[in-house]
Computed example of a mutant assay.
Amino acid sequence: MDERQFMRGRVYGADHDDPDPGPQPGHDYVELVGGPLDGLLLDVTGWSARERDEGVALLTEIGRYGHGGRALYAARPGDGRCFDWHGDSP
């Protein structure tokens, strides 16, 4: 299994050795599309519409800036199930 297959269906922030890194019942998720976190799910349970519209900067070690860098994702217009990648930030 390659890295992309391994990450697909996993929740962002789940521990790498978590025996159940997938979605949990009663939670709301969006799929991260593109960029270093492509295919991961982001738990947006309890987020307001405004928070979803603002997007998010997620810590990642596999983006352009390495350790401490962030991947920028924003809600896809007209599709509340996906956040699209918009670049990396230090």
Results as ranks from 00 to 15, higher is better:
residue 35 G to N: 08
residue 26 G to Y: 07
residue 2 D to F: 05
residue 5 Q to A: 14
residue 59 L to V: 05
residue 29 Y to L: 13
residue 85 W to D: 11
residue 62 I to G: 08
residue 25 P to T: 06
residue 63 G to Q: 04
residue 46 G to P: 04
residue 59 L to W: 03
residue 74 A to P: 01
residue 23 P to S: 08
residue 88 D to R: 00
residue 31 E to D: 11
residue 27 H to W: 00
residue 44 V to C: 02
residue 65 Y to G: 12
residue 46 G to K: 05
residue 13 G to Y: 03
residue 26 G to W: 05
residue 81 R to F: 10
residue 3 E to W: 10
residue 81 R to E: 15
residue 38 D to M: 00
residue 48 S to H: 10
residue 89 S to F: 06
residue 20 D to L: 12
residue 63 G to E: 00
residue 60 T to R: 03
residue 52 R to K: 15
residue 15 D to G: 06
residue 34 G to Y: 05
residue 51 E to K: 13
residue 80 G to C: 09
residue 1 M to Y: 08
residue 50 R to D: 15
residue 32 L to S: 01
residue 41 L to C: 12
residue 75 A to V: 09
residue 84 D to H: 14
residue 72 L to R: 11
residue 41 L to Q: 07
residue 48 S to L: 10
residue 10 R to V: 01
residue 83 F to I: 11
residue 9 G to Q: 11
residue 27 H to K: 12
residue 82 C to K: 09
residue 46 G to I: 09
residue 80 G to Q: 14
residue 8 R to P: 02
residue 89 S to A: 12
residue 83 F to E: 08
residue 11 V to S: 01
residue 1 M to W: 09
residue 39 G to T: 03
residue 5 Q to D: 09
residue 78 G to Y: 08
residue 3 E to S: 11
residue 1 M to V: 14
residue 13 G to S: 07
residue 79 D to Y: 14
residue 57 A to L: 07
residue 3 E to A: 13
residue 38 D to T: 04
residue 86 H to S: 07
residue 54 E to R: 13
